[in-house]
């Protein structure tokens, strides 16, 4: 293939570990009012897309994202890595969207870019539903290979090592296709200073739900076929004994294992 246009789906998520996340008490949506960043899981897809376009000797990476409040800070990170442009769907009507609605929106946006290949993470780090890559593939009528830990292109065919419970399967798939990649599939580059400066001028096309030919009522809370009925603290596990090692701590472990009859 002489030319490879890749769409990479990226999510912009709250900064910090999940333990710092909060749900809005009435809507039960994840609070996203702080700084949003590029989901680290998506940096692997961005890197993979850049490498595949470079190897093909032509083509570019287009980012597709859905986020509230015209958020672009995470997109800028991926643009700074080398992506050429971005499509951002941002619309108040999208608040409370479930996975299927999200996939419909992303699929409609992806279609506009007419890609040869669509890359995604296996799941986001904040919502981790893990079905959106396949839902997008089904909506677009494309094959998909999920949980890919290695991706190589030869001609118009891609060979993927797909994770299995026992090891991996080597899977071949014709293009266009959707591939979800695991973390660690490639080493994401750090944006260079030049890249960061260039990213500021790269085009981000912002769209509303209606621009995609979708009905507001089919997405967001209105279109969701599921609802959160409550959130409560889980039964907490208590911290037990703490021993500071001064050369003898291994004996505490031995005693503990004896007490629970493991040894």
């Amino acid at each position: 293939m002489k030319h490879m246009n890749v769409v990479v789906c990226v999510k912009q998520i709250p900064d910090g570990d999940q333990s710092s996340y909060k749900l809005d008490p009435s809507s039960h949506n994840l609070v996203r009012d702080g700084k949003l960043i590029l989901d680290e899981s998506d940096s692997y897809g961005v890197e993979m897309g850049l490498q595949l376009a470079e190897q093909a000797g032509g083509g570019e990476v287009t980012l597709v994202s859905m986020a509230p409040g015209s958020e672009t800070s995470g997109l800028r990170t991926a643009l700074a890595m080398g992506a050429a442009k971005a499509i951002l769907v941002s619309d108040p009507a999208l608040a409370g969207s479930d996975a299927l609605s999200t996939a419909k929106v992303l699929a409609a946006a992806i279609k506009r870019a007419e890609p040869d290949l669509i890359l995604t993470a296996t799941e986001s780090s904040d919502g981790y539903t893990g079905t959106i890559p396949v839902q997008i593939a089904e909506i677009l009528g494309l094959p998909a290979v999920t949980f890919s830990k290695s991706v190589t292109v030869s001609g118009d065919k891609i060979t993927v090592e797909r994770q299995t419970e026992e090891g991996y399967d080597q899977v071949e798939v014709p293009l266009p296709a959707v591939i979800s990649v695991t973390a660690g599939v490639v080493e994401p580059r750090y944006p260079s200073f030049k890249g960061i400066m260039a990213a500021k001028g790269k085009p981000v096309e912002e769209l509303k739900v209606s621009d995609l030919g979708l009905d507001d009522a089919s997405v967001g809370r209105a279109g969701a076929g599921q609802e959160v009925t409550g959130v409560e603290p889980a039964e907490a596990r208590k911290a037990g004994e703490i021993v500071v090692d001064e050369g003898e701590a291994f004996q505490h472990i031995i005693s503990y294992l004896e007490r629970i009859k493991v040894i």
């Binding site: 479930d98 996975a99 299927l100 996939a103 981790y128 539903t129 893990g130 079905t131 959106i132 890559p133 396949v134 839902q135 593939a137 089904e138 909506i139 998909a144 999920t146 949980f147 797909r162 994770q163 299995t164 419970e165 969701a224 076929g225 599921q226």
Partner: peptide, 24 residues
């Protein structure tokens, strides 16, 4: 099952018959 194949089947099925999916 929340497994590699389970999620693939759920995602495809969800989009095909237009029903939501709850995971995890």
């Amino acid at each position: 099952a929340q497994s590699y194949n389970g999620r693939d089947i759920a995602g495809r099925l969800s989009a095909r018959i237009d029903v939501p999916v709850l995971t995890n």
